[in-house]
Amino acid sequence: MSNPTETNAAQARTAAPPPPPAPPPAEWWRSARWRWGAAALLAAAACYAPFQLVPFHVFQLTMVLIYAVALLGLNLLVGHAGQISLGHGAFFAVGAYTAAILLEHWALPYPLTLPVAAGAAFLLGLAFGVPAMRLRGLYLALVTLAIAIFLVPLLKRFEDLTGGSMGLTLAKPAPPAWSGLAEDQWLYFLTLAVAVAAFLLCAGLLRSRVGRALHAIRDNEGAAEVMGVRLSVHKTLAFAWSAMFAGTAGCVYTWVIGFVSPDSFTVNLSITLLAGLVVGGLGSLSGPVLGGLFVMFVPGLAQDINDAAPGVIFGLLIIAVMYVAPTGLAGLAGRLIRKIPRKE
């Protein structure tokens, strides 16, 4: 006796229109499984690297991750929400100084500084997001630039709290005895953990309705509003989220460097971040990592030619990228993969 459900299914199958021809098997580099494999490989490499490299290179990789977290935030605002910020260095600085002040004056255990710094940057971003939502692109760029310029004298002014132009020197987080890691390795893994968490959070945010709302605002504000996207809420929140990521990066920066001073957070930092993001790739998830690599390594390499060479290269690259590859290095890589002809 046959199973009734099976016959039902068989009848349903015969009743259904003939199934479409199966899609051609995807090449291995296009399959999701390969992508997960690549991610796993990358993760393994990221965990293995600090045991193979000299401390200075481990430090450089740590800085790449810190920049990547900051760029993740900037990307959320610029790449996904289409707003401009020329002042993200200021939010980075707020995170860095919040952590430094908590460590210096309140002797807080360092893991606790992370949520506080992120929260402070979030609130500040929210506060600036409210006027920002009334400002259109150009004006937003102006205001954020003015904030970045104003921050340095402000930090120097409140000397009791911030240490003035001398800055604050702090002890770096010591590796716990059970880990058996050297200091640079411990800092690297701390940063890696924060970066991975930030990436997952950002990816989740973009896949949620928030991400779709931001894309809609970026692509057509009027249409987004008609579709029921509350522009003011989302623009303000985009600013706040974005500031939060920058602040988080700033906090980790304080842990890793063990020193903050106003001159580390001039307007140059903001402009470098924007440059890194544009070159790395606006609006893509891998863009911030590529941008972080770029921000970390290109100035050092170019400095060998001339003190001014990093600026010349940054400036030319930004303009060139806007002309020929508005999606940056990440977009170029994606385009190359798609260029590989499909097998017939």
Binding site: I271, A275, V278, A308, G311, V312, G315, I318, I319
Partner: peptide, 10 residues
Amino acid sequence: VGLFIFVNAA
């Protein structure tokens, strides 16, 4: 902004 960075460095 790219022009800004470039001219300054040049």
